[in-house]
């Protein structure tokens, strides 16, 4: 019988060789390749386009995000990002209980609009209990009430060349080197016309609190939380995102996050 009886010295030598190669591929060795704008990172980020196309193909235009029953609302909606904007225009509006608030709809539309909160509340409304998924990894279920974005877009008569809806916000975030920047976000027309895409003014049966984006925030239920801009100031229809911020379609996108956040 020829058997492989373990030879301790040979085993330890082999183990030593394997273990000693591990630090060679230590993690900070890769940092340079992965910094913003680096070729390797840019190439890998193309996987997001693939995810976007494949998910759009798989889930279709009209599939609905799961909706839950009242009993699943077990806590308040966790606020994240800006929770108390200090922009002077915003503070003035908030101090007047948003009585003078107007949502501007402009860009590639035939009928630019300027809507007050009462006008928005008098439009058709939709209430949905959905799960908010943050890019950080947590989830929270809450009830959102608002006007479907599609209804507002129809009112403004979107021109056919429009491909994106861009949301401009009151809150500015101080994000290191790039300095103070106003929050903005963008979605494609397919998500914009999705039945669950609403401009929400209500949360869990009450008015939308300041911490959660008062007076008006976006809900895009098939994407992650950072797409759902809070403190909406205006909506612009655009054929291209290059003119906004650094051209990546959103403030977080300008900082390296993927534009498509369906995953």
């Amino acid at each position: 019988m020829s058997r492989m009886i373990i030879n301790r010295r040979r085993f330890l030598t082999g183990a030593g060789v394997v273990v000693s190669t591990i630090p060679l591929v230590g993690c900070d060795a890769l940092d340079g390749m992965l910094s913003d704008g680096a070729t390797v990172r840019e190439a890998m980020a193309k996987a997001n386009d693939l995810t976007y196309r494949v998910q759009r193909f798989l889930i279709g235009a009209h599939s609905l995000a799961e909706e839950f029953s009242e009993s699943e609302i077990r806590q308040g909606q966790r606020p994240n990002g800006s929770t108390d904007p200090t922009d002077a225009t915003y503070v003035a509006l908030r101090n007047a209980a948003f009585a003078d608030y107007r949502l501007e709809i402009a860009g590639l539309v035939d009928r630019p609009l300027s809507l007050s909160l009462d006008q928005l509340r008098n439009m058709p409304s939709r209430t949905q209990i959905t799960r908010h998924d943050c890019v950080e990894g947590w989830s929270c279920i809450a009830k959102w009430t608002g006007v479907p974005l599609a209804a507002v877009l129809d009112e403004a008569r979107v021109r056919p060349e429009a491909r994106y809806v861009v949301f401009r916000c009151f809150d500015t975030m101080n994000l290191g080197l790039s300095g103070e920047s106003a929050y903005y976000e963008s979605i494609d027309m397919l998500d914009a016309r999705h039945p669950q895409t609403i401009l929400a003014y209500g949360l869990n049966g009450g008015p939308l609190p300041v911490a959660n984006g008062a007076p008006l925030r976006l809900r895009v239920e098939r994407q992650l939380g950072y797409k759902m801009a809070k403190y909406l100031r205006s909506i612009e229809l655009a054929s291209d995102l290059a003119a906004y911020g650094q051209g990546n379609g959103g403030l977080w996108e300008d900082l390296g996050y993927d534009w498509y956040a369906g995953i």
């Binding site: 230590g26 993690c27 940092d31 992965l34 990172r41 890998m44 980020a45 996987a47 390296g256 993927d258």
Partner: peptide
């Protein structure tokens, strides 16, 4: 030493992961 990049960077972590 157990993450890429070594510093905290969720955006890049997601790019690499996906």
């Amino acid at each position: 030493w157990l993450t890429v990049p070594s510093y905290q960077d969720l955006a890049t972590g997601r790019v690499v992961h996906f």
